[in-house]
Lab assay of single mutants.
Amino acid sequence: MAAAAAAGAGPEMVRGQVFDVGPRYTNLSYIGEGAYGMVCSAYDNVNKVRVAIKKISPFEHQTYCQRTLREIKILLRFRHENIIGINDIIRAPTIEQMKDVYIVQDLMETDLYKLLKTQHLSNDHICYFLYQILRGLKYIHSANVLHRDLKPSNLLLNTTCDLKICDFGLARVADPDHDHTGFLTEYVATRWYRAPEIMLNSKGYTKSIDIWSVGCILAEMLSNRPIFPGKHYLDQLNHILGILGSPSQEDLNCIINLKARNYLLSLPHKNKVPWNRLFPNADSKALDLLDKMLTFNPHKRIEVEQALAHPYLEQYYDPSDEPIAEAPFKFDMELDDLPKEKLKELIFEETARFQPGYRS
């Protein structure tokens, strides 16, 4: 834990890192770190609560700039109880001085990944967590956004079992017609939660990839272990087919990539493993919904509104309290091709509203 900075004593240090967030945020305490930044909790002297502050230093890398800009653009436009918001952003007053960006968010005690390492969940908890994931996802999908990296560590939890989806750095506007060349190379989302079509096709992607990830998360809540822990690309596919069985001819016809289709045709026939054999203690309604989410063919996979209306979630289902976005989200430009200098300018502009004396 960093010592509390005395008023006016300059930035606090946390594990050798400068955290320049005073005077409003003090009493910093280390939480963890990701690929390009550290997260601390801090005391907000204005709202009198502890908050989470993520320090991001992305400006050396085009990919990190892209992810940072995506996350900020999306989260500043989203407003939903099951999606983490941005409360404040701290950065230098000029673009030349801006080396880091500090993002202030609600402090959540833990995440689903940490929880599943230590606790076996009751059916009631599984049901409530799944409902909140789908409630947040309904809003995301209504904005025409794909999260693309749903996994237990991106689901934040607090002691009252509130759940918030975080990390929109890989999110995209849904565009089933656009052929994202190089899709697989830039697709760094965790393999275990990846839909089979991501490994088999490169053309376009749809909201059904997020539903697949939610199915993987439900299976993990039922058993405290990942359902498809593939060691590499082909191993991942083999794990999936080992449980779902061989795809039907109709399902194979959806695979545009001939090499991928021929690979699947070359494999020995596998039978589907019954879900109640894998999860003998699970609620039968939970397994019915799991089956509809972990469907090989993305066109037959359940959609988020149908999933919310499934009998497993009937005690929570309330369409009048499951809000959607006001308007579909649009990125003005494809960020993939922009140089990091341009992305830095866009991050600077996007964060201006939090600067003292800002006038829109």
Rank of each mutant, 00 (worst) to 15 (best):
Y30S: 08
V145I: 02
I255P: 03
F78A: 05
P93N: 05
K114P: 12
Y36M: 06
G204S: 08
Q132I: 09
L130Y: 03
S284N: 08
P356S: 14
L155F: 07
T185A: 10
Y102C: 12
L294E: 06
Y30M: 05
P298V: 06
K114A: 12
M13K: 15
L184T: 10
K292G: 09
H232G: 00
M199W: 02
D177S: 08
K259E: 04
G16A: 06
A327C: 03
A52E: 08
G215V: 15
S29H: 02
A282R: 09
G8L: 13
R353G: 12
L267F: 01
N201I: 15
L278G: 05
M38A: 13
K272E: 09
E186H: 08
A171Q: 08
H310C: 00
L134H: 02
K151T: 13
C166T: 09
H147A: 07
L294A: 11
P268H: 14
L184A: 13
N297G: 04
Q132K: 15
A6I: 08
L157M: 12
L121T: 05
E81Q: 09
Y131S: 07
Y187D: 12
I56L: 11
E349V: 13
D88P: 08
I133W: 05
P298S: 11
M108P: 07
N144S: 10
L335Y: 11
L170A: 07
V273C: 04
F354L: 14
K340F: 06
F329R: 06
I83P: 00
F296Y: 14
K138N: 15
H141I: 04
G37V: 15
R135P: 02
I126T: 05
P176Y: 07
A307F: 00
L237H: 09
R191D: 07
E326M: 06
I165M: 04
P11T: 14
A9L: 05
G357E: 13
I133L: 13
H178P: 11
L335H: 10
I95N: 15
L218C: 11
L107S: 10
N47S: 13
I255G: 03
K48W: 07
T110A: 12
T190M: 04
P280M: 14
Y64Q: 06
L156Q: 15
L313R: 01
G32N: 02
Y139F: 14
L346Y: 12
G16L: 11
F78N: 12
I83S: 01
D332V: 15
T159F: 12
P280K: 12
C161R: 09
V21M: 14
F59H: 00
N123M: 06
Y64K: 05
D321N: 14
K344W: 02
P268G: 03
K117E: 10
Q306K: 04
R148V: 12
G215Q: 13
M13P: 14
E345W: 00
I89W: 06
I209R: 13
I347M: 12
L278A: 08
P274Q: 15
L146D: 08
D162W: 00
P196H: 14
K344V: 10
A143Q: 12
